[in-house]
Write a protein that binds this DNA or RNA. Structure first.
Length: 682
DNA sequence: GTAGGGTTAG
């Protein structure tokens, strides 16, 4: 049979798109019987077609049966295996080809280097790159880009940059390989600068570049840059696909701009589980627990099944506001969905963290015991969990277990450990492990480590030692360091070092009323009334942004939030009644209101009223009114517990014979029988 | 015909 020209054309077109192996075999048969491999359809076209059907065996049989295998047939095989995600076979074929002394071309080298990249085999990749240069393909833009990607994926950005700078021609792909590589290796600034260079050379980025730039902007602290990138994309009329939109949502959420993130999300025409999860996590990260949990529910009502990421973010929201009931419910949902906590380290760790932060340390411990594998973050989490509950000894013992399993502690481990010790008064242990951290583990102490250690020393009254430790710091001591020292000075009435600390704190212009309250409290303790007045004046004229304090209490499965002086609450009158009633009893027991915690220039009696109206007091009053005798109360406060409230709650725990647990931004306070687990320091 | 990406979580 002789094939007409038009028929040949049809067959070639047919082969380009056909995905049915039987049809391809038929064409194959026609081609063989008419003997036209040389002047019509080539074997490599058939090989490519066979690969498209995912039938490698047919392709391989054909390839093996060829009497003479030219470069195109070899390349068809390499590309076929490359597309079929079989890099090992690509490398094998490449080696075989070299043995048979077939001369590779640009495609061969490109695909072979790409295979090495998938295998993260930098040495073979370099070897092939050397071959390519020897064969005269050192300046080939495809080969070059695949080498850039090889280095980038293996984390060798410096070497990638070396090759990049030597390239005689570059296109969008080579630039984008570099930009993406820089972003992935945490060099967001450099990525953005490289894009500027690319623009100077007259090139504009495409979707791949934009995606990398969005991620770059999400990883730096430069809101202006983020805005201008977004504006630039809009100006250029850039088509945003779902991935780009989701990345933008994430970027805005990382800047705390949840409103923008939300409106972007609302305008998305095709949402998927990832876009829902991104916004949920954005809300949770920024403290909008209610919005996060609401969105989880909305997501389900829109027919999306929450994935691990959205569940983890929702759990994060629960731990922030201290909502153990909902946290347990989500845990139940996870079990019902048969999502194995042991199969997902992140989920397990988040659950442990949630239970601990919601005051259920024993549940956290049970889960921790059940985890079949451990990693550094799990260890850090459980150590921190015991730490915030004031169980420093237990934290230390878990730290020892961690070392026994040959897990190397990192800076987070030591931060948790030191903070655990500072919450339990393990002074000498703290000093010891601080030194071990530096000498044995070669971890440069960061400010957070100093803060814990200074807090620990100052609490124990060793303020001179704490002071000299600050002097030895390599980094500039920040406000947290001086605050830690100042707190100790108040408790131990160390006025001269305290004054130094107080002035340092003021010099650093704290933007937090709580810190000014502490400074004022110090001056009041030292009976320096002029200074107390000065602090008040700074607060008044400073135009300080007040972060509203609130307390949340879980009563009968529902969360109830209170702000200071929450008169809008239907039970406000009753709550005031019980608080006043208790206060009379407390005074008989020796309670004296610490009015220096009120920074308003008002009558003494008004100050007492203001203290009574603190959100944690209201939450406790509400809890006492609405739960049965002896019920344990768990309160979560977004700021630190006020010093007067701390004192008052000790008395309240005696009067109502209840365990009261207050979690503030730092730690847990277990009040029982007139005592607090944190000692007398808050 | 061969090169670059794929967003979210502890």
């Amino acid at each position: 049979m002789l094939l007409e020209k038009w028929f040949l054309k049809d067959l070639k077109y047919f082969l380009l798109t056909c995905k049915d192996r039987v049809s391809i075999s038929k064409v194959h048969a026609v081609v063989i019987t008419s003997g036209i491999f040389s002047n019509g359809i080539s074997p490599c076209q058939l090989i490519t077609s066979y690969f498209r059907t995912a039938d490698r065996n047919f392709a391989h049989t054909l390839f093996d049966s060829l009497p003479k295998r030219g470069i195109n047939s070899w390349n068809a095989m390499l590309i076929g295996y490359s597309r079929g995600n079989d890099p090992l076979e690509v490398i094998n074929l490449y080696k075989q080809m070299r043995l048979e002394r077939v001369k590779p071309d640009s495609s061969t080298f490109t695909v072979a280097i790409k295979a090495c990249t998938s295998l993260m085999d930098i040495n073979s990749g370099k070897e092939i790159w050397k071959n390519a240069v020897e064969c005269g393909y050192g300046d080939d833009i495809f080969v070059g880009s695949s080498v850039l990607n090889l280095y980038a994926k293996c984390g060798k950005m410096d070497e990638a940059m070396g090759v990049f700078e030597k390239m005689s021609k570059r296109d969008v792909v080579s630039w984008s390989t570099m930009i993406t590589g820089l972003v992935k290796s945490g060099k967001a600034r450099e990525a953005i600068n490289l894009y500027r260079r690319m623009q100077k050379e007259g090139l504009e980025g495409d979707g791949v570049v934009m995606l990398a730039l969005i991620q770059a902007c999400a990883n730096i602290e430069d809101l202006k840059m983020a805005y201008s990138l977004h504006a630039y994309m809009i100006r250029r009329g850039f088509h945003m696909d779902g991935v780009a939109q989701t990345s933008l949502i994430d970027m805005y959420a990382k800047y705390g701009k949840v409103d923008i993130a939300c409106s972007l999300f609302r305008t998305m025409s095709y949402k998927n589980v990832v876009s829902w999860s991104t916004l949920i996590s954005g809300y949770a990260r920024n403290g909008y627990a209610g919005n996060a949990l609401q969105l989880l529910i909305e997501m389900q009502s829109c027919g999306f099944e929450p994935d691990l990421v959205s569940l983890v973010s929702a759990l994060l929201a629960c731990s922030q506001v201290g909502f153990p009931l909902l946290g347990r419910e989500i845990h139940g949902y996870i079990v019902r969905r048969r999502l194995d906590v042991n199969q997902n380290q992140v989920l397990g760790t988040t659950l442990i963290d949630m239970y601990a932060k919601c005051g259920l340390l024993s549940r956290a411990h049970v889960l921790y015991k059940r985890m079949s594998s451990d990693d550094i973050i799990l260890w850090n989490t459980i150590i921190a969990s015991y730490g915030i509950h004031g169980q420093g000894e237990e934290a230390l013992s878990i730290f020892h277990q961690m070392i026994e399993t040959d897990t190397k502690p990192d800076h987070v481990t030591f931060a948790s450990l030191l903070s655990a010790m500072s919450h339990s008064g393990l002074v000498d242990e703290g000093r010891y492990w601080f030194d071990v951290m530096i000498k044995e583990y070669k971890i440069q102490p960061m400010e957070k480590h100093y803060v814990s250690l200074i807090d620990l020393l100052a609490r124990a009254g060793r303020v001179e030692e704490a002071r000299s430790l600050i002097g030895s710091m390599e980094c500039e001591p920040g406000i947290a360091v001086w605050v830690a020292l100042l707190s100790g000075c108040i408790n131990h009435k160390k006025f001269s070092i305290g004054e130094l600390a107080a002035n340092k704190v003021l010099e650093l212009n704290p933007n937090s009323p709580g810190i000014y309250a502490l400074v004022s409290n110090f001056f009041a303790t030292a009976k320096k009334w002029d200074e107390v007045a000065m602090v008040r004046k700074i607060m008044k004229t400073g135009g300080m942004k007040k972060f509203p304090g609130y307390s949340v209490v879980e009563v009968n499965g529902k969360l109830h939030a209170f702000v200071v002086e929450d008169k809008s609450h239907p039970q406000y009158g009753e709550i005031m009644g019980i608080l006043e009633e208790m206060e009379n009893e407390m005074r008989d027991m020796g309670y004296v209101p610490k009015t220096e915690f009120v920074l308003h220039n008002v009558e003494e009696e008004v100050k007492v009223q203001m203290l009574r109206n603190h959100s944690e007091r209201l939450a406790i009053g509400f809890g006492i009114l609405n739960t049965g005798n002896g019920t344990r109360l768990v309160i979560t406060k977004n700021l630190r517990v006020c010093g007067d409230c701390h004192e008052a709650i000790k008395f309240i725990s005696v009067i109502v014979k209840r365990e009261i647990i207050v979690r503030d931004m730092k730690r847990f306070h277990h009040f029982k029988n007139g005592r607090c687990s944190c000692g007398d320091y808050w």
